[in-house]
Design a protein around this nucleic acid. Structure first.
Length: 570
DNA sequence: GCCGTTTTCGGCCCGACTGTTTTCAGTCG
């Protein structure tokens, strides 16, 4: 059982305890432990074998016993018992923004509602507004929230799906019967959220491959099985599809299943125009039905007179025209990244110390980072007072004195207050090496006010980067209302950079907005916003989103040398 | 439920915003 799965069990327990109105500090203890396990850089199973579980902060005797039970049996009897007293469907209701445990309890106790669909009916029947403490706005928030949840029902974050796919593919590759195993589908195209995980294997012995696949530790249950394919569900509830093809047809099958369907359709049309037929099994002459040899995906594009289209671009957004005209972008890659300009330390709400973050960044091969802790008004995140900001700056200066091949920029993530002012005065911002501005409060402002608010921040000459420009949290919170076109026009004229926040639950800007920004000539900083050393690795998701937005190396601020970053800063 | 001690209990992050109220409770970050 992985750290992720253990963390999920703890989170589920926390939610159910909260719904049962148990001791709030107990609830917090479970949440804290879930977070600790999630952010752990080592496998919990390994710590358990060593007998050092209790050394993890937040895990005591009780939770250590639950971890042990989970590792040994795959189950937690405490959770199972809890589910009998608290309807698990209430957890779904808890995910609606603006609806907390108290409201869920009222809804459950008064109306007997236990599922999202029952709640939706009640809200449409205007039954919610008559509950104590609720009104028509709550009812509307519920309907909106349910709409949002429905729109990505059963979908998983790329940050969950990609590591899972990589693990399964890696485990299949070691089998002697497997010639090749690859990720396909939307995961390979690096979509921010995916409905399922598709895996393709080249083998002449599908039965053996399918048998091993069905017993994979990530697989909870096999849903369906054919002669060459298996559909399974993972412990995290993700659908996992395996297809086994003969080695000779791997290339065309890989291409076909990578999609997208619109991209494939456009390719098929192009093939038809050339007297050819393209399908899952390969490329054929329409006249005599004779197959043309397809070794790899490259052959398909080449036969159709196109440059190879990277998977991230296969969305029918003009990539075929670009491929025909030799105008495909040379996409940015992880190897181009030289630094990370947004991260937190335990000076504010980060987990690790400043030297630990520096050391981790150096191990990643970076040449520079910016340390950007929260500003003073964000008290819950332990935002830095003016005194502590100055103090931290001194610590960073001393760190830099002892390093020759690495530079720490003294930055700050300054809050954009509700009225558009920044959380520190200009004379303070002026002293910083790098200033990131972002919104953390007052999300439910109308579009006009929010746009004006952010515009005011972008206009401030000390602000270098606008971070997570829409504030969305995938699957949990929609973007706030903001006119991004207007923000981008302003950013283009002021020379303010925009961020791709690489955290897999943000990916903000998204691929489409990134492309717009690129077309407007706005440099993009791909930042992790890491709160611990492990999450510095999330850079890859930001880079993948950048690739989906057609970004090239030169478009990305943190592929530049430190000298260039400093030179082009406002 | 964890943690740390003034060691076996008592404390555990807090302020702003929203919608419901008519002075405040619930939610969120």
């Amino acid at each position: 059982m992985t750290n992720l799965e253990i963390a999920w069990v703890f989170r589920e327990i926390a939610d159910l305890l909260e719904l049962a109105e148990d001791n709030p500090f107990k609830v917090r203890a479970y949440r804290k432990a879930a977070k600790a396990v999630f952010h752990l850089s080592r496998e919990v199973a390994e710590l358990w074998r060593e007998g050092s579980l209790l050394e993890v902060p937040g895990i005591g005797k009780n939770l250590a016993a639950k971890v042990e039970e989970l590792l040994q049996t795959g189950q937690c009897s405490f959770l199972e018992r809890l589910k009998e007293t608290v309807p698990p469907g209430l957890r779904d209701i808890l995910t609606i923004p603006g609806i907390g445990a108290k409201s869920v309890r009222t809804i459950h106790q008064v109306l007997g509602i236990t599922t999202l669909s029952e709640l939706e009916l009640a809200a449409k029947d205007k039954k919610i507004r008559h509950l104590p403490g609720m009104g028509s706005k709550t009812e509307l928030a519920i309907l909106r929230g349910i709409d949002m949840l429905k729109s990505h029902q059963g979908a998983a974050l790329l940050g969950i799906a990609l590591p899972l796919a990589e693990q399964v593919v890696g485990d299949l590759r070691v089998l002697p019967e497997v010639e090749r195993a690859e990720i396909t589908g939307s995961v390979r195209r690096s979509k921010e959220m995916v409905g399922d995980v598709d895996i393709l294997v080249a083998s002449s012995q599908p039965a053996v491959v399918m048998q091993v696949f069905a017993k994979h530790p990530q697989v909870k249950e096999v849903l369906a099985q054919g002669t060459d394919r298996t559909r399974a569900i993972t412990w995290l509830g993700l659908q996992l599809d395996l297809l086994v093809v003969p080695p000779g047809s791997f290339g065309s099958a890989w291409h076909h299943r990578t999609g997208s369907s619109q991209h494939n359709r456009r390719l098929q049309e192009r093939a038809q125009g050339m007297g050819l037929k393209l399908n899952e099994r390969g490329l054929f002459s329409k006249e005599d039905g004779e197959g043309l040899p397809v070794g790899g995906e490259e052959d398909i594009y080449q036969r159709l007179g196109l440059a190879f289209v990277p998977p991230e671009l296969r969305e029918d957004r003009g990539e075929l025209e670009a491929a025909a005209n030799g105008e495909l972008p040379h996409l940015v890659s992880m190897a181009d990244i030289r630094g990370d300009l947004h991260m937190h330390t335990n000076w504010s709400d980060g987990v690790n110390t400043l030297p630990e973050m520096v050391e981790a960044a150096r191990r990643r091969g970076y040449e520079y980072i910016a340390v950007t802790d929260h500003s003073r008004s964000l008290s819950i995140a332990n935002g830095l007072s003016l005194e502590r900001l100055v103090e931290q700056r001194g610590v960073i200066n001393r760190l830099n004195e002892n390093m020759e091949d690495f530079r720490v920029l003294a930055g700050v993530e300054v809050d954009i207050l509700a009225d558009g002012r920044l959380d520190y005065p200009d004379e303070v911002l002026e002293l910083m090496d790098l200033v990131i501005a972002s919104v953390h409060t007052g999300f439910r402002m109308d579009g006009e006010r929010m746009t004006a608010r952010v515009e005011q921040a972008v206009k401030n000459p000390h602000v270098d980067i606008l971070a997570h420009p829409t504030g969305r949290i995938l699957g949990r919170r929609n973007a706030y209302e903001i006119d991004l076109e207007r923000i981008m026009e302003l950013a283009a004229s002021t020379g303010t950079w925009l961020e791709i926040n690489a955290s897999p639950d943000r990916l903000d800007l998204d691929d489409m907005h990134v492309r717009t920004a690129k077309d407007m000539g706005i440099p993009i900083a791909i930042n992790t916003d890491a709160h611990d050393v492990v999450r510095l690795a999330e850079m890859r998701y930001g880079v993948l989103t950048g690739r989906r937005g057609w970004l090239e190396k030169g478009d990305v601020v943190n592929t530049w040398s430190l000298e260039e970053v400093m030179r082009r800063m406002r």
